[in-house]
Amino acid sequence: MQNEICCESPIIAGTAEPETNIQHPMEGLLRMDRMPHIWCSGCGLGSVVTAFVEGLKKAGSDFDKVAVVSGIGCTGRVAGYINLDSFHTTHGRAIPFATGLKMANNDMTTVVISGDGDLFAIGGNHLIHAARRNVDINVICVNNFIYGMTGGQTAPTTPLQARSSTAPYGNYEQPFNLVGLAAAAGASYVARWSAMHVRRLADSIAVAANKKGFCFIEVISPCPTVFARKNMGGTGLDLLKSFGERTVIDHDADPTKIPIGMNDEIVCGNFINEDRPTYWENVQTGIRDAVDKENVYWKNL
């Protein structure tokens, strides 16, 4: 299932510089000694990595002050390929790991990149609580509608009636609308793009990198190896094309009202961009008064 052939991203984003010496445009931010990567030909993850690197460049981030945390699964492997402080953690736990990291060093731009199963099934509780707290971390959720690495089982995003290894007669469960859930839980920034929209995605990643509070970006991504094979068939490129055709960009859409079905439209956009106090800011406000009355700390002894 894991095709070792290095796939070329269907879309190479980034501005073309006049070439003096030939170098991969992302050299320095990718761990070239780990190439080729393990992702299948036609997978959307290459585009997401491209968009992430481009987004950080656009944001002007200090690369020594960016940490990437991933969970488990195909997308969980992103952390391993990006040449930043990077952690490949346990299944579903990237968000609390990242929260601890951020709370202990507020200077770090902390980005969680993981998949839909990791972040919304086993890790779903962490996601909604991190959004509720408005922890200053960014979550990029690559949604391919299925568990890819383990062989195509049903995910909390698998559309109704879609086939999977554990839904041989079609999926019986209503899927989550990820952007709706993140927005309802209180995220400060919510966007959705597909792996087709690399430049727009990079722009959203750049916005999130410099924005305080919990930022959530969903990326619809093709999984030709299991999702397409079990359902509509076709290559990664075919899936990307269909995403492009189905996309409606509407920044004003209510993120709670735009679920994704099997064949209907995919509403993309930057839906929410609000400022509300982050967890860290609330902590500072909360303790300011107490600090003046230092003797209170004897009381519990």
């Binding site: 790991f97 929260t99 709370m103 202990a104 509780n125 609580h129």
Partner: peptide, 16 residues
């Protein structure tokens, strides 16, 4: 939100 998260968080924090 749970014990799992609290354990994961101290690992993230310790890396700093």
């Amino acid at each position: 939100e749970d014990e799992i998260a609290s354990m994961a968080s101290i690992l993230g924090a310790s890396w700093t």
